[in-house]
């Protein structure tokens, strides 16, 4: 693997990383309340989105790299112009925003707000007004509901229209009707512990979840059945699908609070590559000094970026050998 770019533009731990559709830009959110955008090929910082007054928990960028949406602990969700770095609109909520995601057609945004201070955790869907400069947005959500039982931690739009995919604190994975808020389908025992990340396949027909229960799992988006399980020996914070190659990338490590009592070696602060079909580990990449909080794969499969508790974003570009290697012989695997 080619020497990587280690970018230090954040003063606190990373919370979420996203590539744009073309993969030339990397957006990073951090607890230092700043959102950065970087060139993926050399790790140079392009700009900063400043305005939040609390840890930025989550972000997402639309497929045209036009709008950026971020959610923060200051109870705000903000819409930004990717190009100018201007804040276009601010939605305010009673509690912190934990997760945001664009729909496939960029027309809708789903967000999860925290359950705190007497407020229930809520999932809201907003319709985005893409006309004009983007500053004319409706403050009221198109729909809003409170999932009963365990609170939602992650969410996304699957390919089925009108549904929202969620991962919960209890390890549950569920499908909700975006309008009525009814739970359409659920898999209560998808994981044994908090679902920490949920990333969709390019066609949004299956998805990968990571959990504190030390496993990552591949699920069918329609039936929510578990297709594959990847069991590691460390709590996982993030999991990404490698495009074009049959691998999944898993990251995690000892809890941040326990890191001081564990040595680097046993902390397992590595990105693990697992074979998507055979459920076997094929490789590891070291680098971080703390647990990995988020992993994002380059959309064209030429590299990946990882963000850690140590405040670093590490951008990796694959060597030729990565593309040539066929650890299990010549098998054709549909993506």
């Amino acid at each position: 693997m080619r020497p990587t770019d280690r970018t230090a533009g954040h003063e606190r731990s990373l919370t979420q990383i996203k590539f744009n559709k073309e993969g030339d830009l990397i957006f990073t959110a951090s607890k230092d309340s700043i959102v950065n955008v970087w060139f993926s090929h050399n790790g140079e910082r392009l700009g900063t989105y400043e305005g939040h007054n609390g840890a930025v928990w989550t972000l997402d960028v639309d497929s045209q790299s036009h709008f950026l949406v971020t959610g923060s602990a200051d109870n705000e969700m903000r819409l930004w112009s990717v190009q100018t770095g201007k804040c276009l609109f601010v939605w305010e909520f009673p509690t912190a925003v934990k997760r945001v995601a664009f729909s496939e057609d960029d027309a809708e945004i789903v967000c999860i707000t925290e359950q705190r201070m007497g407020y229930q955790g809520a999932i809201r869907v907003f319709r985005l007004n893409r006309d004009g400069d983007g500053t004319q947005q409706n403050t009221e959500p198109q729909s809003m509901f409170h999932p009963v039982g365990s609170k939602a931690t992650v969410c996304a739009f699957p390919y089925m229209s009108g549904l929202i995919l969620t991962g919960h604190e209890s390890g549950k994975v569920a499908l909700f009707d975006a309008k009525s808020g009814d739970e359409v389908l659920s898999n209560e025992r998808a994981h044994m512990d908090v679902v920490t990340d949920l990333q969709l396949s390019p066609d949004r027909s299956y998805f990968l979840t990571s959990s504190k229960d030390k496993t990552a799992r591949l699920h069918d988006a329609k039936t929510l059945t578990v297709l594959k399980t990847f069991s590691t020996e460390t709590p996982l914070n993030s999991a990404a699908l490698a495009p074009n190659m049959p691998y999944v990338l898993l990251g995690g490590g000892q809890e941040a609070m326990n890191v001081t009592t564990t040595s680097l070696r046993q902390g397992k602060f590595e990105t693990r590559f697992w074979h998507k079909i055979f459920e076997e580990e094929v490789g590891r990449v070291k680098g971080h000094f703390g647990p990995l909080n988020t992993i994002a794969a380059h959309p064209s499969g030429t590299g990946y970026a990882s963000g850690g508790e140590d405040g670093f974003v590490r951008v990796h570009h694959y060597d030729d050998s990565y593309f040539r290697a066929k650890p299990y012989g010549d098998v054709e695997i549909l993506n």
């Binding site: 066609d203 949004r204 027909s205 329609k222 695997i333 549909l334």
Partner: peptide, 12 residues
């Protein structure tokens, strides 16, 4: 896996 993917693609 391949069979499932093919089926899935049709559904999508």
């Amino acid at each position: 896996w391949n069979a499932w993917r093919a089926r899935c693609k049709e559904e999508v």
